[in-house]
Design a protein around this nucleic acid. Structure first.
Lengths: 216, 216
DNA sequence: CTTAGTGATGACAGTGACTGACATCATGAG
DNA sequence: CTCATGATGTCAGTCACTGTCATCACTAAG
């Protein structure tokens, strides 16, 4: 409540440290309190005791504040795939990498659920989430190629892994409290094989009008 | 202030028809000529002989102009899955639906490639593309549930189908000219089964620090 | 013919995200 | 002390997008 005391009540140094963290915290709080759209960058900055301009020095846009840990996950995925024994199949390497990410998320389920409620409530944020997942697939693809896997198989394994991860996360995040994301992921990876098992020659179906780009 | 007597200097009176089409055409042209970011809505509107305000009456935002056919594809997916014989497995229904979409795209490969070059060149547009694909998965999931498939399997089949579609499209759009997207899709669906065949109990890997949301 | 209703558009004045340019103020190296 | 550096403030500006009202053509009564 007393957040109004913007003036540096800080005797010792100059500006408070951890500006980035304060901005992120203020943003998450406000996004929850008022919703993403109703929250202005000016408000976030004010609550953090910083100027609007400074917000954009730390985050390229209003959404990115919720996705700042993405690089760490990217590195984890790449590293895990690189470290998996060479005897492992591509899909096993993918499973290990995604399992590592699951492990991280399980460490703080509450925060994950809170963040998910903010993200899933707004289209723009869901878009960013999809970009993040696409990046995961891209990173894993490259890491697999590094292992000597063909581009085609690497891409396929990575995209399928991410697809399964999406389903697992959705089940977990709104499932019972004690459940383990890693368990769900591995269950689904096994199930997925069965689901694809029925592939034969699909039925043909004639197409409709024209490509969904635009009118004349 | 002054009632701004701009009055239609448009000789014949009457506004030209097909405003939406002209806007879409002008936008695609300008996005190609100058790039997406460098193109302002004012320019698009001017080239179409309309006001900026009118642009936003036809398209909710600057990107949507490239994605106006999405609803038609959504309907095609839902309809195709509903029409596939009840004996078909979920993954076959998904294959048939995506095959139908492939059929549409094959009708005008040049336009698809042109549009792809615009979309893949800009992050914001790629985001929209991912939303579109996520919507495909969502629509197919619901259509499968209508057929009596469990939510879990429906979601899995749809997400995997879309994942494979993404890979197929990427291969096709920058592949040789004569190739058929439907063929690539079906090849990959068969391969995907093999890729997942190696699933066993994935290696475990300890996680790192904390969830990728934000700092303190 | 006149009048009122409708639908698409123009005009205008915002709001808010984001950027560029420059000033300011502590800290640390010399 | 001086100067460079890095983080921030301040200000002006662009542009996507919105709300509101006026305008024009067309149409259907009256």
């Amino acid at each position: 409540m007393s957040a109004s005391v913007i003036t540096y009540d800080r005797g010792m140094g100059r500006w408070e440290p951890n500006a980035r963290g304060r901005l992120a915290q203020a943003a998450l709080t406000l996004y929850n309190e008022k919703g993403f759209d109703a929250t202005t960058v000016a408000e976030i900055s004010a609550r953090a005791g910083l100027s609007e301009r400074t917000f954009f020095r730390h985050f390229p846009d209003k959404r990115e504040v919720l996705f700042s840990g993405t690089e760490m996950v990217r590195d984890l995925l790449a590293r895990t795939i690189a470290e998996v024994p060479a005897t492992a199949a591509p899909v096993q390497a993918v499973g290990a990498a995604l399992g590592a990410v699951c492990g991280i998320m399980q460490e703080d389920p509450e925060r994950v659920r809170l963040r998910d409620s903010v993200v899933s409530a707004h289209t723009e944020l869901r878009e960013r989430e999809l970009i993040k997942l696409a990046m995961f697939a891209s990173v894993m693809t490259e890491a697999l190629i590094e292992r000597g896997v063909s581009e085609r198989v690497a891409n396929l394994a990575a995209e399928q892994g991410v697809a399964i991860f999406k389903v697992a996360f959705a089940l977990w995040v709104r499932g019972p409290d004690g459940s383990k994301l890693t368990d769900i992921l591995h269950e689904l990876m096994a199930e997925a094989r069965g689901v694809l098992g029925a592939v034969s020659r699909p039925h043909s179906c004639a197409g409709g009008s024209s490509w969904p780009t635009m009118g004349p």
